[in-house]
Design a protein around this nucleic acid. Structure first.
Length: 238
DNA sequence: GCGACAG
DNA sequence: ATCTTGTCGC
């Protein structure tokens, strides 16, 4: 339903990967309003790893943006194809994420990623990369500030503080719960930062993290566990 | 050179 | 990401 081939020039080395980011960065669209928060569908994607078995599992969970009810979900399992390198997370996660999105029975709508978009050493993080490859509107919601700096937002839910790369504002530290550690929101593709903030708040009625990432996280972990068990049981899949 | 570093 | 028990509190 979101069939996108992995580009033929998918990198093998860190140097190639950085070159790919520099080459695609210009394709990010930052001046579109994106889908109205609270309407349509919102999809969470996440990935889990089993280094021992060289397994990676991705999940995509589609929610109704208004009710936050699960509309559809899909998973994909593969082999780990790229190491974790700060700044190059997309190359580790995107292949399997694309497979999971492709397995969905319906369009994803806005995609919420675990990690960053614009807030990235070369301004082209996972959320931006996934957006450019699929054409879908994307945002990134990360759990920690990575290399960026911020001042503590006020206590109430909804409070923000700029997320800074030096003097450049690359995203927001956003409180999604009163007095609870903030999350870090950045634009991915075809969504404004103000809307990324609104979407994140609409997705956090009860917990610090968006329902999309909570659902996707639980699902990819389960898919990983089941894939590992199947392998241990001698399941060749044939 | 050293340390830090989304997941 | 992942390894991991109990524990304090709403």
């Amino acid at each position: 339903m979101t069939s996108v081939r992995i580009p033929a020039d998918w990198p093998t080395t860190e140097e190639q990967a950085r070159a790919v980011q520099d080459g695609l960065r210009g394709r990010v669209v930052l001046d579109e309003p994106g889908p109205p928060p609270g309407t349509g569908r919102v999809t969470g994607v996440d990935v889990a790893y089993d280094d021992e078995r060289d397994l990676v599992a991705a999940a995509a969970v589609v929610l109704d943006a208004g009710s936050l009810e699960v509309v559809a979900e899909a998973t994909a399992v593969g082999r780990i194809s790229f190491p974790y390198v700060p700044g190059l997370l997309a190359f580790r996660e995107i292949p399997t994420v694309l497979a999971a999105l492709d397995a969905l029975p319906c369009p994803p709508g806005l995609v919420v990623c675990d990690g960053y978009g614009l807030a990235h050493p070369r301004r082209f993080g996972l959320a931006s990369h996934l957006g450019v490859l699929t054409g879908l509107p994307t945002i990134g919601v990360a759990k920690n500030p990575f290399t960026f700096t911020f001042t503590t937002p006020a206590t109430p839910r909804g409070s923000t503080a700029p997320l800074l790369a030096g003097a450049e504002e690359v995203g927001l530290a956003l409180r999604t719960r009163d007095a609870v550690k903030p999350v870090f929101v950045s634009v991915g593709h075809r969504v404004t930062l103000a809307d990324a903030r609104a979407h994140t708040l609409a997705l956090t009625p009860a917990y610090r993290l968006p329902e999309t990432t909570r659902r996707a996280d639980a699902l990819c972990r389960r898919a990983l566990r089941e894939a590992g068990e199947a392998r241990d049981a001698g399941d060749t899949g044939a």
